[in-house]
């Protein structure tokens, strides 16, 4: 029985299981400034248990900052971030570590520990946070790597594997402790369409089979609409749209429409529109 199943059983026994899924992630009026410049302007969002929320937005809109605030890496200047009902920035180091053991994160680059093999990367959280025997940890590592299709890469170093494999290995490490919550930072950026499909499939499988709550930060539209239960669109540090994927598709906000459909014509310094028009007229 996995640690997650044990937790679920405990929740059912204590009678805390309710019909309305609990809110796992919540931010209230989250404001973050860097050197006086406001990057996030009062973000309010919530994610329910088992839900996959996709946060979309153009580069530099504050997606990564929001993710770092959710992870506890950046303290908000105003507002709160709650994970599992606890204000994480009010927690002590030990309490925060207890919260951290309940979530996993897949970084954009995989962020594998370069001095360790893929297998050792996956084994590290198990060694440090569980009392499992070495044989059991080895078995768990094989299971997690099998899950992401990387069984053969166990003994390879991160420098010996491709970008797509590094992402999958990062995902295997993120799910090592059977987390209740998973954060994904640009999970498909820089991947070919086949690998993108594999990663999307893994995100959906984890949500469906293990009831994992997911927060996916991405600007890959195809992938976002494939995995999302609900979406928010950020623009210049503000939420400009929020809803189900079909609602976002039909949203009337000009930025959302432009972001989803792509600009009809690009204005570039190389071929300014006026020059193009002159060329056509001539």
């Amino acid at each position: 029985m996995t640690t997650r199943q044990i937790r679920n059983q405990e929740a059912e026994q204590s009678g805390t299981a309710t019909t309305e899924p609990e809110i796992v992630v919540r931010t209230r009026n989250l404001i973050k400034r860097f050197e006086g410049r406001e990057v996030l302007h009062g973000i309010d969002l919530s994610v329910r248990r088992g839900e996959t929320l996709v946060v979309m937005g153009a580069s530099g809109c504050g997606k990564s900052t929001l993710l770092r605030c959710l992870l506890g890496a950046h303290a908000p200047d105003e507002g709160t971030v709650e994970l599992f009902g606890k204000d994480i920035h009010a927690l002590g180091r030990r309490e925060m570590d207890d919260v951290r053991k309940r979530f996993g994160i897949l970084f954009q680059s995989g962020a594998l520990y370069s001095s360790m093999t893929v297998g050792e990367n996956v084994a590290l959280p198990l060694k440090e946070h569980t009392d499992l025997s070495k044989d059991m940890i080895d078995l768990m590592v094989k299971v997690k790597l099998e899950l992401v299709g990387l069984r053969e890469a166990e003994d390879l170093l991160p420098s010996q594997i491709s970008g797509g494999m590094a992402k999958r290995a990062g995902l295997a490490r993120a799910i090592a402790l059977d987390p209740e919550l998973l954060f994904y930072d640009e999970p498909t950026s820089g991947l070919d369409p086949i690998m993108t499909g594999i990663i999307d499939g893994l995100i959906m499988d984890l949500a469906r089979t293990m009831n994992v709550t997911s927060v996916v930060v991405t600007h890959d539209l195809k992938s976002a609409f494939r995995v999302a239960d609900r979406m928010v669109v950020l623009n210049e540090g503000r939420i400009v749209a929020e809803g189900m994927p079909h609602e976002i598709k039909g949203h009337t906000d000009p930025f959302v429409r432009r972001f989803i459909q792509g600009p009809i014509e690009a204005k570039t310094a190389i071929f300014p529109r006026s020059a193009l028009e002159r060329g056509t007229a001539g």
């Binding site: 207890d98 594998l112 590290l124």
Partner: peptide
Amino acid sequence: GTMTVNEEILALEASAL
């Protein structure tokens, strides 16, 4: 420094390590 810029340090902290 390389580990920091490659987010490996953040990954350690996020794993409660």
